[in-house]
Design a protein around this nucleic acid. Structure first.
Lengths: 208, 208
DNA sequence: ACCTGAACACCGTTCAAGT
DNA sequence: ACCTGAACACCGTTCAAGT
């Protein structure tokens, strides 16, 4: 049910030979590196191409414009997060509610704070493009996984389970974002790690 | 204790005559309008100046660069939100915990969803600039107001009240942002309005 | 004091020419 | 098939000239 990305944001062509697959990988890698070393303001298509060891023209053979490049990089990151949340959800299926809740929070935090700098860089870049579709896809995937998980709880049943899954997803991603975006100080992260499990447990206990 | 904005982000000069105060107001107003009507990608200093009825040069007399302009507009919006949260906090002082919680959530939601389009536009623009200082100021102000409020609760005491205030602030702003940024569909907003009070009540009950 | 707008540097994007 | 890089349009920013 994933919405296909608007045509304007699709990669221009897919690599058909080994050489060009390598080119695309290099461009991806270079984008993250430039973002991290120079900042969003100095993220230039020319600079990315240079860092990747290709010409600008080559970059534009694969991505119709800068937005499409950033979109692809952000998409890759969000899919990694979705994947680890979905894996965690399968792993905790059928267990008691509090076990699920703690496992879910841990999986989400690990995925987002595994590479804090990259995550922050991508937040910075995400508002330069139209991410409505991408973000709502991720929300639906993660929300659905959480909903399935909660349905399987051995010790709880929910009335409005869709709303609960949605809210939990928004609370997790939003709270983590709020902290990372405000500087991600070690102190703030410590608070997050101790309070987020409490918050989720409490919410789930209240609505089941 | 508010951190002074980095010099680079300060307005270039303050208006000293009525004419120039009007100019600054017009520029502010024009920025929001262009953002709303043309989108972040087409937000150009020339376009803002044109809409404000002044020349680009004039714009640059008050703001050293585009970032400083966006910074000022975002700051104004965040201060409005901080103000209404602080007002709400004073209003609910000394009352029972659940009353406080509901009042706080309502104040925050009202402030953020009063002008949804403007709020969304500002999210889009906020990642084009260095908002670490600004955001952590707001977090501290709001976090402190919440902490004071909780201290005054007639029926509760907290052990790590700083962490609770901080988490509540992050959870509120993050969750609302997550929803607004994912399209702010009416359905999502309805869920938010019904679930956010539950979430906050439950969290506060769990930690006191 | 404040305003104007042509001029400059830089960045996104294209396309004719190369392998 | 894939790559190159000079060329073009547009945007941020400045500054000499105006009121």
């Amino acid at each position: 049910m994933a919405s296909t990305p608007p045509d304007l944001l699709k990669p221009r062509k897919s690599p058909r030979q080994a050489r060009s697959a390598a080119t695309v990988d290099a461009i991806f890698e270079a984008t993250i590196q430039v973002l991290l070393s120079e900042g969003a303001a100095r993220l230039t298509t020319t600079r990315v191409a240079e860092r990747a060891g290709v010409s600008v023209g080559t970059l534009y053979q694969y991505f119709p414009h800068k937005q499409a490049l950033l979109y692809a990089v952000l998409k890759q990151h969000l899919e990694k997060v979705s994947d680890s949340v979905e894996t965690a959800c399968r792993h905790y299926e059928g267990l008691p509610l509090e076990t699920m809740s703690d496992g879910l929070v841990a999986a989400f935090l690990d995925a987002k704070t595994g590479n804090i700098e990259a995550a922050r860089a991508l937040y910075l870049v995400s508002s330069e493009l139209d991410t409505d579709g991408l973000l709502s896809d991720v929300t639906h995937r993660v929300g659905a996984a959480i909903t399935r998980l909660l349905t399987s709880a051995s010790d709880a049943a929910f009335s409005d389970i869709e709303a609960v899954g949605f809210t939990l997803c928004a609370a997790l991603s939003g709270t983590v974002r709020a902290v990372l975006e405000r500087g991600a100080s070690p102190g703030a992260l410590t608070i997050l790690r101790s309070q987020l499990p409490v918050l989720c447990r409490a919410y789930l206990a209240a609505v089941h």
